Simulated assay, not measured.
Amino acid sequence: DVKTAINRRYARHSYIEGHMRASIVDNELMITVHGEVVGQINGLTHIDLADASFGSPVRISANCYAGRLDVLTIDREVAMSGPTHDKGVMILQSWLHSNFAQLNPLNMTASLVFEQEYNGVEGDSASCAELFALLSSLSQLPIKQGIAVTGALNQHGEVLPVGGLNEKIEGYFRVCKDIGLDGRQGVLIPQRNKRHLMLSDEVVAAVANGQFHIATMNNVAEGILHITGHSLEEINSLAEVKLSAFKLTLEANLPKIFTK
């Protein structure tokens, strides 16, 4: 009876989610759930519209180039992000500095954006996804597009729990199902959220059959290994090479100081 009531409630209020999912299937909202891409990842958002509450994926992309502006989020620059999201980005930036800039400045400008998001961004649950996209861009190692990521971050690289987890997972599962499950899709969530899982029978059955996967992470190293297949040490080595090249580029283009 409880499951029947839940299913009927979803049927009554699923129009908006269904419309968004149709836009993804029709490629109006660009979400890729197959293959691998550098500097691009699927984050998971939770949309709460009172009666309708559901999850939906959003593409997050990153670019890195020589500069001195650290991490720029395009959403923040145009005043489309809230304070909690901005706090998450500043924590991400702190982790980057402690990981790469102990002896030299980063010499990097990185841009992050939530693609095709026009209603504003709030919350820190995309911090891990943003960091992974940025590390992928720095190292030029691709990210598995079938794996969507949610999780907040602290300055020590530990992954913190987030809200709306069940809705996020079920929403992404429905997107993958409509596009086509290939056994490689799934979600990467905080280990500390594992006890909060209470998913629909359809998702549970798909996980049991190996059509969909749910993985957990305690820290950045576990997360980046899962979505790229490369350890954090490998990524750091490649990123340091790129940062060194940025440093040389900046030094070569510094204004010449003439003295008499």
Rank of each mutant, 00 (worst) to 15 (best):
D201K: 14
P142D: 08
I91H: 03
T45W: 02
L248F: 07
W95D: 11
A66L: 07
Q116C: 08
N107F: 13
N209H: 13
C128V: 11
L72V: 14
D51H: 00
E77D: 11
A133P: 11
M108N: 07
P83C: 11
C64H: 01
I189Q: 00
N104K: 08
M90I: 03
H196F: 13
I169P: 00
K256H: 09
K168F: 00
F246K: 12
A129C: 04
T84R: 05
L225Y: 04
E167L: 05
N63R: 12
A215E: 01
D26V: 02
V159D: 00
V187D: 02
G157D: 02
S244W: 10
I143M: 01
L96C: 06
L96I: 08
N218I: 05
L197R: 04
W95M: 13
N7D: 15
T109S: 15
N219Q: 03
V175N: 10
H34G: 01
Q93N: 15
L199I: 12
T84D: 03
V220L: 08
E167C: 00
D70H: 05
S137H: 10
L243F: 06
V37F: 00
T4V: 12
S56W: 03
G229K: 06
T84V: 15
Q102V: 14
N107V: 10
V175H: 10
N104Q: 10
L199Q: 06
I41L: 02
V2F: 03
G55H: 13
V162S: 01
F54Q: 03
L197D: 03
G123N: 06
H46V: 12
I143H: 04
F246Q: 08
S94F: 03
N193T: 02
I6H: 09
E28I: 15
E167S: 00
Q211M: 12
A133V: 04
D124Y: 01
I47F: 02
M198V: 14
T228P: 05
N154Q: 09
I60K: 08
R76Q: 08
G35A: 07
L165W: 01
T4E: 14
I16Q: 02
V207D: 03
L181R: 11
L153Q: 13
I24K: 07
N42V: 00
R68Q: 10
A110S: 14
I41P: 03
N42E: 02
V58R: 06
G120K: 12
Y15Q: 10
A110F: 14
S136T: 09
R174I: 03
L106D: 08
L131I: 05
V113N: 11
Q93V: 09
D1R: 07
A22N: 11
N209G: 09
L112R: 02
I74Y: 08
P83S: 14
G120S: 07
S137A: 15
K260D: 14
T259R: 12
G157Y: 03
L254W: 02
L225V: 02
M198K: 06
L96G: 05
C176S: 04
L197C: 07
H230C: 15
D124M: 01
K247Y: 15
A66S: 13
D201V: 07
M108V: 12
G157H: 03
S231T: 14
G35Y: 10
F258L: 12
L131W: 07
Y172C: 00
T32A: 12
P161T: 12
A79F: 15
V207Q: 08
I31A: 05
S23V: 01
G157N: 05
